[in-house]
């Protein structure tokens, strides 16, 4: 399994900066990550850590200041016109807010059909059948096709967004917090749907979220991001059982467990303060001002990702010693 995986998307030291009045906002600050075919990578971090910017950099919406984004081996910024169009078909996005991402003036069938029309994928007659087929795949039916977005609940809207993403038969879908606006029981429905579709169509997902407990249900590997850099990458289960980075540990320990008896016994690592501003980053490790283990070295030198075990990367000077 390990050897015959083919990468679909490779990020090589990607840096996406924004110029703001106070200086340079380093939203994504040197991220390297590979997503393989048929795999789900969970990208986890708090708000403002740059995870959505990274998602949009992959979507070719932001041009990275440095580094490369390779899709099936080719740099997406070296594309010619035709390839560019092809790329917008191969990579799709599912958005966070199911209320904001659907055109309120279009009916569902038009929303789902729009991409296919642009790419001239079907004739008019075929198109209608295809829309109904897609709606069926995500658990909606014929009656829903002629309704407007406001007639649906949050979970149903998210399904419309998923149908729209699937319509172009993409190879990779960037899911930007697809479930955080939904109720718990509906979240489970959407996650199960995404898992089923992946099995049927061999999709790859980048699942961007701040919810460490839900992302575990769908991801093969998880990357933890803090202030623009990845701090830990590992197989999904290893993040929960054999984690090394103090930030990963704090993040896990902050998640409440739905059981009062367990909670009473649990010791919690409470992080002090908020995430610092990404405009003026600390010189050493980004996490050092909130880290309970930070030492002299951490304040001076930025740690690089290094391998602790096969496939398990950690960016921490003190990993393994704490």
């Amino acid at each position: 399994m390990e050897n015959n995986r083919t990468p679909i998307l490779e990020l090589k030291d990607v840096k996406t900066y924004f110029r703001v009045p106070r200086g340079v906002l380093k939203a994504v600050n040197g991220v390297s990550l590979t997503i393989y075919k048929g795999e789900t990578v969970g990208l986890v971090g708090e708000s403002g850590c740059g995870k959505s910017t990274l998602g949009k950099t992959i979507m070719r919406l932001y041009r990275p200041d440095e580094g490369q984004v390779l899709f099936e081996g080719k740099d997406i910024w070296s594309y010619r016109k035709k390839e560019k169009k092809e790329y917008t078909k191969n990579v799709q996005m599912i958005f966070q807010d199911p209320y904001a991402c659907l055109d309120p003036l279009s009916v569902v069938s038009d929303i789902v059909a729009e991409g296919m029309k642009i790419h001239k994928m079907y004739s008019k007659a075929e198109l209608e059948n295809r829309v109904l087929e897609l709606l069926g795949m995500v658990g909606l039916n014929r009656d829903h096709a002629s309704r407007f977005p406001h007639e649906f609940s949050g979970g149903q809207r998210q399904r419309i967004g998923i149908a729209r993403a699937l319509s172009l038969e993409p190879k990779l879908i960037v899911c930007d917090e697809p479930i955080s606006a939904l109720d718990v029981s509906i979240q489970a429905q959407v996650v199960n749907l995404l898992k089923r579709l992946q099995k049927e169509m061999g999709l790859s997902y980048l699942f961007v979220t701040h919810d460490l407990s839900m992302v575990r249900q769908i991801s093969n590997r998880i990357a933890v991001m803090y202030l623009g850099s990845l701090v830990e990458i590992a197989d999904s289960e290893d993040i929960y059982s054999k984690n090394y980075h103090p930030y990963t540990r704090a993040l896990l320990s902050a998640i409440p467990i739905a059981d009062p008896a367990v909670e009473r016994e649990r010791k919690r690592i409470l992080l002090q303060g908020d995430v610092p501003s990404p405009v003026n980053l600390p010189e050493g490790c980004n996490f050092c001002n909130r880290c309970p283990y930070a030492g002299e070295e951490c304040r001076k030198k930025k740690p690089e990702l290094r391998q602790m075990e096969p496939g398990h990367l950690v960016a921490c000077h003190r990993a393994g010693k704490i």
Binding site: Q217, L252, I257, A258
Partner: peptide, 16 residues
């Protein structure tokens, strides 16, 4: 339907 960190991952999440 709440996934729990202290439990193993189920094949499919229970959903109402």
């Amino acid at each position: 339907s709440v996934p729990r960190l202290d439990k193993k991952v189920a094949d499919d999440l229970y959903s109402i």
